[in-house]
């Protein structure tokens, strides 16, 4: 059975009266926001020789990201399904101002979306890591983006701690073990039941030379190439992610 298709253009059908009513309600529904320092873009030279620009995503780019993410919600391999479904909801929440103090970073190669990471501020000193979704696998794109997320929390948002859970064994190996993170099971992470781990400033700076990379500033020319964001070829992306045993001699 085909998955239902997200209705991208629902806003087109609102009347002006409806819009006015929504504006009034909207003020009550939107959470207050903490000031957030911007994430300065950087470039990472990947093993393939391609340059990935890591930059903040624009709210206007959410629709494109949702379109890319949606088909992955049915990919069970490496828990792409749960990560994609939850990331879909988080980005939709960001776009519709239903999640407080959320941010999103993207990895972009030649204008094409290669990966997405997001999180939010719990308060001024504590951050919550949400998800890391790699769309181009095999080049440590996810690893670079997760490191950028930690860099954002600690160095640019000036936080003391980031609370993290992993929803896949890959995530557990890459974050909990590779950094390594400390257990903080007494914290109830917003993603639910999984035990929370924490990245402290101390852990971050110890791991930084090993795991956090990239070059700043990004030239105007290179940065311009990362706009407008383009979706990857869906067939290529799904094949690479699923890596099924379909080919025959």
């Amino acid at each position: 059975m085909s998955p239902p298709v997200y209705d991208w253009d629902a806003d087109e059908y609102l009347t002006s009266e409806e819009e006015r009513m929504i504006d009034e309600l909207e003020a009550m529904l939107r959470p207050p926001a903490l000031p957030m320092a911007p994430y300065p873009p950087k470039s990472v030279l990947l093993a393939s020789g391609e340059t990935m620009v890591v930059r903040q995503a624009l709210v206007e780019e959410v629709d494109l990201m949702l379109k890319v993410i949606q088909p992955l919600s049915w990919v069970t391999r490496d828990f792409y399904d749960i990560v994609s479904a939850r990331l879909f909801a988080e980005l939709l929440g960001w776009k519709t101002h239903r999640v407080r103090d959320e941010y999103c970073l993207v990895g972009v190669i030649d204008g094409v979306l290669a990966g997405i990471v997001n999180g939010r501020l719990f308060d001024e000193k504590h951050g919550v890591s949400f998800h890391t979704l790699t769309l181009k696998r095999g080049l440590r794109v996810g690893s670079h983006l997760f490191a950028s997320k930690m860099e954002h929390h600690i160095e640019y948002l000036g936080q003391d701690e980031v609370w993290i859970v992993a929803e896949s064994p890959i995530g557990h190996r890459r974050w909990m073990i590779e950094y390594p993170l400390e257990k903080k099971f007494e914290v109830q992470h917003e993603l639910g039941g999984a035990p929370a781990w924490v990245l402290t400033r101390d852990t971050y700076f110890k791991a930084k030379s090993r795991l956090v990379t990239g070059t700043r500033p990004v030239s105007d020319e290179l940065l311009a190439k990362s706009y407008p964001l383009r979706e990857p070829d869906l067939r290529v992306m799904l094949t690479q992610i699923e890596h099924t045993l379909e080919a025959r001699v």
Binding site: V44, L45, L139, H144, T213, T215
Partner: peptide, 19 residues
Amino acid sequence: IPITMEGILTGPDALNNNP
């Protein structure tokens, strides 16, 4: 995945790509 000398050995991010 084709890889390059710059990406895995000589480039600025090689140690992170290729630990």
